[in-house]
Amino acid sequence: MDVFMKGLSKAKEGVVAAAEKTKQGVAEAAGKTKEGVLYVGSKTKEGVVHGVATVAEKTKEQVTNVGGAVVTGVTAVAQKTVEGAGSIAAATGFVKKDQLGKNEEGAPQEGILEDMPVDPDNEAYEMPSEEGYQDYEPEA
């Protein structure tokens, strides 16, 4: 019985440690998101679009440190934060509304985080759909 109880105690310690790591990862992701939003706020009209992409990228980098179902929630929060940063930029006159959601080359930025393969159960990952990809044929 002692062996059984000791095993359960060790398992509990492992769960607590994993929860603490997840909590730490979420806190880091939130900190990076805040950094990115402050970065966007300090940019001029020309830099705002690039700044919004930076927020998304920093958040995406930190999301990889967070495991399990938390990833889905962090990704949703990050996307809403990026959308909010863009709205703030438009409201303050840093950028025109028609410039939001495009990178410096004018290509749409939507789907940055949505296409990231995420499995809350950590069982399997699927690649994003290939609808947006084109076949590449090298020139002879």
Rank of each mutant, 00 (worst) to 15 (best):
P138F: 10
D121H: 14
K34H: 09
E28Q: 04
G86K: 07
K10R: 05
K60W: 04
N103C: 13
V48M: 09
F4T: 00
T44L: 06
G31Q: 03
V74Q: 02
V15A: 01
N122R: 13
N65T: 14
T59C: 14
A69G: 06
F4A: 01
K32I: 13
A85C: 06
A90I: 04
Q109M: 08
A107K: 11
A27V: 12
L8C: 01
K45H: 05
F94P: 06
V37T: 00
V70N: 02
I112N: 09
V3A: 04
E46P: 04
M116L: 01
K34V: 06
E139I: 13
G132W: 08
T81L: 03
V37S: 01
A29M: 06
A91Q: 08
K60Y: 06
T64N: 08
T92H: 05
G47N: 15
D121T: 06
P108W: 05
P128K: 07
E123A: 06
M127V: 13
Y133F: 11
Y136Q: 15
K80Y: 06
P138W: 13
K34F: 11
E35W: 13
S42A: 15
K97R: 07
T33M: 14
P117F: 06
V66L: 06
D98K: 11
V15C: 04
V74A: 12
V15P: 00
F4H: 00
P117Y: 06
S129M: 10
V71A: 09
S129W: 14
K80V: 03
S87Y: 10
I88F: 15
E114R: 15
K97M: 01
D119E: 12
I88T: 06
A29R: 04
A11P: 00
A17T: 01
T64G: 06
D135K: 11
V74C: 12
S9K: 15
Q99T: 10
N122E: 02
V77Q: 02
T92E: 06
T64E: 02
T44W: 14
T33N: 03
A89G: 11
L113G: 13
E123G: 13
T64L: 10
V66H: 05
A56E: 01
A78E: 02
A124M: 04
Y133C: 12
D135H: 13
Q109I: 11
K97P: 13
V82A: 03
A76V: 12
V70M: 04
K96Y: 14
G86W: 06
S129K: 05
L8Y: 06
E126Q: 14
G7Y: 09
I88S: 06
S87H: 09
A76T: 14
Q79I: 07
G25M: 15
Q134I: 10
E83D: 06
G25Y: 14
K34T: 05
K32A: 06
G25C: 15
G132H: 08
A91D: 06
T33R: 01
V48R: 02
V40Q: 00
D115R: 12
A124W: 09
A89T: 09
G51P: 02
L100K: 01
N103K: 01
Q79A: 06
D135E: 11
A56P: 06
E137F: 04
E28A: 06
M127K: 13
G84P: 03
K43A: 10
D119R: 12
T75V: 12
K12S: 08
N103W: 13
A19S: 01
M127W: 13
V40N: 01
Q134P: 11
Y39N: 09
A124S: 13
T59L: 04
E131R: 02
K21H: 08
A53W: 04
E83P: 08
G73H: 12
A78W: 10
V82M: 03
G14F: 07
Q62T: 10
